[in-house]
Write a protein that binds this DNA or RNA. Structure first.
Lengths: 134, 134
DNA sequence: AAATTTGTTATAATAAATATAGAACAGAAG
DNA sequence: CTTCTGTTCTATATTTATTATAACAAATTT
């Protein structure tokens, strides 16, 4: 899987990495059960510091997306049964809220927003299906 | 409109302020044409520095949500006709993407995500309708 | 068994972002 | 005319982000 880091971005490197990992999993480039590369090797590949990658992995673990086995490696978790009461999902709502509000304020209609979200989800799932074929 | 700043949050104060302003407009607490309080008075109200409020206003202007008339004040813009090619909306997609990907990875289904977004939008519009009644 | 690689932890240094403070200016509003 | 406005400037303190080394003990590889 190809990861592109933009050092000039206002988004911190470790966040860029975290997001691209998550999107990679959503796309099926990385699958549950797979191991992530070691912090050292990935850092070398990306040309960033070991600690930056480590911080990203810690973030992914906090989000329950991977589990880290000490002295071994990071493994992508299987999706759990969704429980909307879980604080995990409240955080998702919290992150979405300002963006949805902004869309509304800029004049987007409910249907437009929903269409946007729909195509976004379908994009991920389409690429996931393609990854299953290979 | 009541604004609540949490100084301990990991979200910068100016971002908290920007988001709450946007949500206030989406809710109809603030309406297009209304003036925002001056940076000095709002800073005094919130107990934060003038420059922090100023930064938030600059952010709102960059998002085309308000216009700032030099030496006068900040006024909430009327929503323009939506043109999805506008970089404004690309930024909205860019902000949504990692959150949607995270929801998918955590096991949420398309319908669940859409339901979540729907209720969020309806919440805003409901409160907006209530504000019109008064 | 030995060598390498692993995550982890610690310390240090630098740069950038965040927040506050105070001052000053010129135009708008009263 | 006086006050208030956004704006700009300098300065400072704090936090965050990033890199750089180094070391340790467990896991893996050779």
């Amino acid at each position: 899987m190809i990861i592109q880091i933009e050092p000039q971005s206002d988004v911190p490197i470790y966040t860029q990495l975290t997001n691209q990992m998550i999107e990679g999993i959503a796309r099926g480039d990385l699958q549950p059960g797979n191991s992530l590369p070691s912090v050292r090797s990935l850092a070398a590949d990306l040309g960033v510091n070991m600690h930056t990658v480590h911080k990203s992995y810690q973030e992914l673990e906090k989000k329950k997306i991977i589990r880290i086995v000490p002295k071994s490696g990071a493994v992508i978790n299987l999706p759990k049964k969704v429980n909307l009461r879980d604080p995990l999902y409240k955080r998702i709502v919290a992150q979405c809220k300002p963006v949805i509000a902004e869309a509304l304020v800029l004049g987007m209609r409910k249907e437009q927003i929903q269409a946007l979200i729909s195509t976004m989800i379908e994009d991920f799932q389409e690429k996931k299906a393609q990854n299953r074929e290979e």
